[in-house]
Amino acid sequence: MPDNTSDDYSRTIPVDPVIHIETFATHQTLTWKAGSRSQFVEAVRVLNAVSPTASVVVDDTAVAGRRDRSLADIDSGNDTVTYLRIEPDAPWTVSWEQRTRPIVSVSGAPPETLCRRIHRRTTDCSDWSGEAIATLHRLLNDETS
Rank of each mutant, 00 (worst) to 15 (best):
T144M: 09
V81Q: 10
S10V: 01
T5I: 08
V81L: 03
P52G: 05
I19C: 03
P2G: 05
R85N: 11
W92M: 07
R85G: 01
R101I: 12
E143H: 13
I133A: 10
W32G: 05
T113R: 13
F24P: 07
Q28N: 06
T100G: 09
G35P: 00
A54C: 10
Y83M: 06
P110F: 09
R45G: 07
T23W: 06
N4F: 14
C115Y: 09
P52S: 00
E143K: 11
V44H: 07
I86F: 06
I74D: 13
A90H: 15
P2S: 13
A34H: 01
A134M: 02
V50C: 12
V56Q: 02
H137V: 02
S107Y: 01
Q39G: 01
A34E: 10
E97D: 10
A132P: 03
T144Y: 09
T23I: 06
W96T: 07
A72Q: 15
T61L: 09
V94N: 03
S36D: 10
P111R: 13
A25P: 00
L30F: 14
L139C: 02
A72I: 13
T144C: 05
A49S: 15
A64D: 12
E131Q: 10
P91A: 09
V104Y: 07
A132K: 07
L30Y: 15
R67E: 14
C115Q: 02
P17K: 05
V58C: 02
I19F: 02
T23Q: 13
L47A: 07
P2Q: 12
T61G: 04
S107N: 03
A90E: 15
R138F: 03
Q98I: 00
H119D: 06
P110T: 11
Q28A: 04
T12F: 02
E112S: 11
N4T: 12
T122K: 04
R99V: 11
V57P: 00
S107I: 09
A34G: 03
S76T: 07
I118V: 15
N78R: 11
R138Y: 00
P91L: 08
A25C: 01
R121E: 14
H27D: 14
A132F: 04
W128N: 08
R99K: 12
D8T: 02
R85M: 14
R37P: 08
E87V: 14
V106D: 03
P102E: 13
A54L: 06
P14V: 09
T53K: 06
R99S: 13
I21D: 10
P17A: 10
C125L: 03
M1L: 14
L136C: 01
D79F: 04
R117D: 15
W32M: 09
I103L: 10
C125R: 04
V50E: 08
I21E: 12
P110R: 09
